[in-house]
Design a binder for these strands. Structure first.
Lengths: 227, 227
DNA sequence: CATTTATGACTGACTAGTCAGTCATTGTAA
DNA sequence: TTACAATGACTGACTAGTCAGTCATAAATG
């Protein structure tokens, strides 16, 4: 089943690239054009799903937004549901790689956690991706496959990495509270709150996530001494 | 507009209660019967909305579950959308009252926070109400009226109350980190995570929310000395 | 009996998914 | 190089089905 993904590059020449110097930007290679359209569909679908949720999203709208006929969508995806699932997966995968904790280099654990959290705030909480997280929270229960995938690929890995960091910090004496190793969720909780807050309440009361993060880290690692 | 809410109790006697001792449970009083049906509809609608989200929920299903004809629903609610909004409001209100911080009584702030958090875990995170919170997160952006209401009635009040408690604790010396006053969200974050976790990941990895709470409080108030 | 309340068949708008047909692109032969 | 054939990506009108909301009719009530 589910062959339908035509994107597989044939032969070798990936090189007919999208020089796309000046003018029309017309793409010749058939496969390229197809890939381009697929990308447009994915983008459009993402926007629509985020804006309306799964059930309320119309394929007609996705098609229109992607500048494509509805039938074209079905050349790339089996149906609405598998499109949705594949979409989420595709969007998540790029982040999975970074979850392997970078080798505990020289600096303090706090610095490492801080830079990780900063990255998260900038690349997720501050962007449309925050809505993606919200979408997963929203649709998860109705798409167990997605919840499972998300748990396996993101949550469990992320928590494992975080636990390792906490363990290290406890060993080094950077963190006093050893029980924290059992609850790596506590380290991440403020990030989750930030994501949700941005999606729902930002216009009521803007949240200074960076400042909150500092306070959070001070609680866990102890306040930095004022030099 | 939107009169349609028939629930207003007439006269005084709320007392013709639902004795409902043994048999049919037949209720005589018209208004009571109406109220009963309304309650059944509300309950059924809640279940369906939680299970499927707003868009995917069918009024036919709500009617069937409530043991009522579809037309009956429209005797109580203007349409699907306002039913949804009113539903959420109705479900939230009972909790608003408790958010006024009980007068800072004798005990420590930590004990007070702890008991509040415990209550939250038991009455929200442990129950179907957790899914209600998830539902608000999920549908909030599409129902600004609900997000607004939720922010006004729950979030802002809850945070204000929490801020007052933190302020008190800082004054008393129970909390060392004064910046926490600026970020009452940090106090609540683990509760939010618990709610989401229960909804999405409980079957993958059960979360001991109580234990997590203890660790969290130890971080904020300092570990209890082992006597 | 008059009035209020409840019913559920019905309607009309809407939408996921299909498929016969079109046509630009690619391959092949002269 | 040019003419012709094969391919398959793309289209959009269409089908079959769904569902919010209505209303003529029936039941319950006082």
């Amino acid at each position: 089943m589910s062959k339908s993904l035509k994107t597989a590059r044939r032969g070798g020449d990936v090189a007919s690239a999208v020089a796309d110097g000046a003018g029309t930007g017309a793409v010749s290679r058939r496969a390229d054009r197809a890939a381009e359209r697929r990308a447009a569909i994915v983008q459009a679908a993402m926007d629509e799903f985020i804006a309306r949720g799964f059930a309320a999203t119309r394929l007609d709208d996705i098609a229109k937004r992607a500048g494509v006929a509805k039938g074209t969508i079905y050349l790339h995806f089996k149906d609405k549901e598998s499109m949705f699932e594949e979409l989420i997966r595709t969007a998540i995968v790029p982040f999975v790689g970074r979850l392997a904790v970078p080798p505990p280099l020289g600096g303090s654990v706090r610095d490492m956690v801080e830079s990780l959290a900063r990255m998260f705030l900038q690349e997720i909480a501050g962007t449309r991706r925050a809505d993606l997280v919200r979408l997963i929270i929203a649709e998860g229960p109705r798409f167990p496959a997605i919840a499972d995938f998300y748990y396996r690929e993101v949550v469990s890995r992320g928590l494992a990495a975080m636990r390792a960091l906490i363990q290290l910090a406890v060993t080094r004496g950077e963190i006093r509270e050893p029980k924290l190793v059992q609850h790596p969720q506590l380290m991440i909780a403020p990030m989750m709150v930030a994501v949700i807050w941005k999606s729902l309440f930002e216009r009521h009361a803007p949240l200074d996530a960076e400042a909150m993060l500092q306070t959070h880290l001070d609680l866990i690692f102890g306040a930095r001494r004022p030099t």
